[in-house]
């Protein structure tokens, strides 16, 4: 991984799609430049990440943390829907999932 890690606009556009952000053309261009610099700087992690080193995903190693199977208090319907941008009856309302072409 010693080569430069540039991210072109097309890649940024694809990542934005995965991340569901409707970036503008300008943002895509700007990000592709900024992120290339950042990635260049942080890609050095692979220099020391040799196969013999195990990965750590939790800073403090715990295991088998469970909860007893006992139902607790739920939100009221009004609480549940209190932040909803739009509702219909007691359900959250969203736009059509498929576009017209489908």
């Amino acid at each position: 991984m010693s080569e430069s890690h540039s991210l072109d606009s097309e890649q940024v556009a694809h990542l934005a799609e995965l991340a569901r952000i409707a970036l503008t053309e300008d943002e895509i261009k700007k990000l592709s430049g900024e992120l290339s610099v950042i990635i260049d700087a942080i890609a050095k992690v692979s220099e020391v990440a040799t196969p013999d080193v195990p990965a750590t995903s939790h800073p403090i190693a715990l295991q088998n943390v469970f909860r007893p199977d006992v139902p607790g208090k739920t939100l009221t319907v009004e609480q549940a829907l209190s932040g909803a941008p739009e509702r219909e009856g007691d359900r959250f309302k969203v736009s059509a999932i498929l576009g017209e072409e489908q």
């Binding site: 219909e88 009856g89 309302k93 969203v94 736009s95 059509a96 999932i97």
Partner: peptide, 12 residues
């Protein structure tokens, strides 16, 4: 069905 729907509602 999902095709042709005007909007959708979610129950969690």
């Amino acid at each position: 069905r999902i095709q042709g729907a005007d909007h959708s509602l979610v129950d969690y």
